[in-house]
């Protein structure tokens, strides 16, 4: 019973997404992509545009990505301390 409901729901979700995508076509707006490609070497100075984005245009994202690594490692270290309780 649950498997039937899950399959119906998932197929319905897939059908809904496909119909919305196919009615407007896969048209990609190239506004920021053109800006990055044409102005990145003069503003940032790196020839690899992805590096330029990752380290200069979107620096705040990279800082907080390092932050989430820090918090995750601190959490794993904190959780793995042995404590004296037994079951429950």
């Amino acid at each position: 019973m649950r498997r039937l409901v899950s399959v119906v729901l998932v197929v319905f979700f897939a059908f809904l997404m496909m119909s919305r995508f196919l009615e407007s076509g896969f048209f990609v707006n190239e506004l920021s992509s053109n800006y990055y490609i044409f102005n990145s070497y003069t503003e940032v100075g790196s020839k690899n545009i992805v590096t330029g984005i990752y380290l200069d245009y979107r620096l705040l994202d990279s800082i907080f990505e390092a932050g989430i690594l820090l918090v995750s490692v601190a959490g794993v270290i904190f959780m793995s301390k042995k404590d004296e309780n037994v079951k429950r």
């Binding site: 800006y35 503003e43 245009y57 620096l59």
Partner: peptide
């Protein structure tokens, strides 16, 4: 905008 870039591409 962080870094004073254009508003299309900066955070």
């Amino acid at each position: 905008i962080i870094g004073n870039f254009n508003e299309i591409i900066g955070i």
